[in-house]
Every structure is written in structure tokens, then in C-alpha cells.
């Protein structure tokens, strides 16, 4: 088996993005990024596979230099190599432009057996990057995967769909997005590796290192575009009642009767 690549994303702390009331532009209150919570199960799956098959793990992240601590966190969890994809030209990428950069970086890391990603980010929340990257690499993809192992040189995966679970056999290499509920237990980082990573830095690849087509990058290379952001104003429209529980419940019952939900 060849190496496993895990893609991780830095996301703003929930609640730290606001709309500027004057310019209507999105503004971030802090530039601090956290690891996308849905990427933790992907990392956990990667570490388990590493332990089972003794293979190299590579973590890659496309983003500004402040995702470096998150790559180091991945190292502390068991990743062997950290790669940061960072270039001004990547800014403003939609999922197609993001998947293009990830796919080209993954190609450069060939040969590989598996790419693991989170189901979706908690900021963009499109869940599109994993299948889109696989499509650009022209390899199979599965989403919402909750378990994965190798048998006779083929991947056997369980994926969740609305109707139940499917057991799928796939000729690799393969891209999987991991179900957020795949694991009951997720291991903490190892102390030894936390110390070790202090003296390590990720490899940085810029657009030039990947021979990328500049027309396909960033805002320019992104066919979907946000044309407007609107902050929804909420106005009071009904009756607000304060008082003792007893009174409130009486009122509630009165309304439920009015609406014929309960009989007198």
C-alpha cells in the first residue's frame, strides 16, 4: 500500500464572522483559525489505518500561514509529513478552484492509495471539495464513510446514505469524506510528538511549485461568486408574554385550543 493523504482546513472560530453594517462586507473579528471539527474524524481514520498497515501519512492544507499550527496539531496526532499550500493567488477560491489546487498537490505526492477529507467544513459548508477533487484526479470518491479497510488490494468502505448503509468495494486510489460520527473515541495528540513538532516546519508549496494554470486560481478561477451578503434583520411581530409559569401555560393552552390542536 502507498501513502495516505489527509486534507485539513482551517476555519474561523464559530461566531467570529460579522457583516460590516456600512460596507456589507464580511469581516473577521480575529484571524485565529481552528481545525475544521469535521476533519478530526478524518485524521482519526488516517491514524488508525497507519497503525494497521504501517504506511506514511501526509497532511495537506490550503490556506494562509496561520494554518501552520493546525498542520502541527495533525503531526502530533500521527501525521508524518506536513504540507502547506499557500499563495496569494489562492485567495477567494470557490470549491472548484480549491479542488484544483488540492488535486495538483495530490498528484505531486503520487503514488498514493487514499485521500481522506472531512465531510464538510463548518464555514463554507458545501461538502463539495472531496468529490470534486476526486473528479479532477479522475479517481473514485465516496462520501460519508464510516469505516474503511483493505482486502485483496481493494478498499472496502461503508458509506452512509439517507436510506441506510452501503458496503462498497473500490479499486483504489480513492477519495473519501469521513462521516462526522464515524468514531466514538478520538485520540488526543501524543505528548512526545507535540514536543517533536516544535522543531519542525511544514513544506510550503506555492502556485509555481505546482505548475498551476493561473487562470484557474483564486477569485479569477472561481465560477461561483458571492454577489451580495445580506444581514437579516429580525423585527418583533407578535405578542411577548412574561409572567409566572402557570399563567404562561394557561395562555399556551388557550392558543392550542384556538388552533384546535386540543379539545376543550
Amino acid at each position: 500500500m502507498e501513502k495516505i493523504i489527509v486534507c485539513i482546513k482551517g476555519v474561523p472560530e464559530p461566531g467570529s464572522v460579522k457583516v460590516d453594517p456600512e460596507t456589507h462586507a464580511l469581516k473577521r473579528e480575529s484571524m485565529e483559525l481552528i481545525l475544521n471539527p469535521n476533519d478530526r474524524p478524518a485524521l482519526e481514520m488516517a491514524v488508525r489505518l497507519k497503525n494497521d498497515y504501517n504506511i506514511e501519512l501526509v497532511a495537506i492544507s490550503m490556506g494562509p500561514p496561520n494554518v501552520i499550527p493546525l498542520l502541527k496539531h495533525a503531526y502530533a496526532l500521527g501525521v508524518d509529513q506536513m504540507i502547506l499550500l499557500s499563495d496569494r493567488a489562492f485567495a477567494g477560491s470557490d470549491t472548484l478552484a480549491t479542488s484544483y489546487v488540492l488535486a495538483e498537490a495530490i498528484k505531486k505526492l503520487s503514488p498514493f492509495s487514499l485521500v481522506l477529507m472531512g465531510l464538510k467544513s463548518i464555514d463554507g459548508e458545501t461538502a463539495q471539495v472531496p468529490p470534486e477533487t476526486a473528479s479532477l484526479l479522475d479517481i473514485p470518491s465516496l462520501t460519508n464513510v464510516k469505516s474503511l479497510f483493505m482486502k485483496d488490494n481493494k478498499w472496502i468502505a461503508i458509506r452512509e446514505i439517507e436510506y441506510g448503509e452501503e458496503e462498497v468495494e473500490v479499486e483504489g486510489p480513492l477519495v473519501c469524506s469521513v462521516s462526522p460520527t464515524a468514531f466514538e473515541y478520538i485520540r488526543p495528540p501524543s505528548l512526545k510528538r507535540l514536543l517533536e513538532v516544535k522543531n519542525k516546519e511544514p513544506i510550503v508549496w506555492q502556485a509555481g511549485d505546482l505548475n498551476l494554470d493561473s487562470q484557474k486560481l483564486g477569485l479569477k478561477g472561481s465560477p461561483t461568486q458571492v454577489v451580495e451578503v445580506i444581514e437579516k434583520k429580525i423585527e418583533t411581530k407578535g405578542i411577548i408574554l412574561e409572567g409566572e409559569t402557570e399563567e404562561l401555560v394557561e395562555k399556551l393552552i388557550e392558543v392550542l385550543k384556538e388552533k384546535a390542536l386540543i379539545k376543550n
Binding site: 470549491t95 468529490p131 473528479s135 460519508n144
Partner: peptide, 16 residues
Amino acid sequence: SLAPRVAGALKVGLCA
């Protein structure tokens, strides 16, 4: 699962 694969194959945008 399908829409992003198709968008990738056609190299077009996809709104989520």
C-alpha cells in the same frame, strides 16, 4: 456526492 463530481468533470461552478 454526485453534483460535485459532475461539476469537476465539466470544470464548472456549483452552488451549494
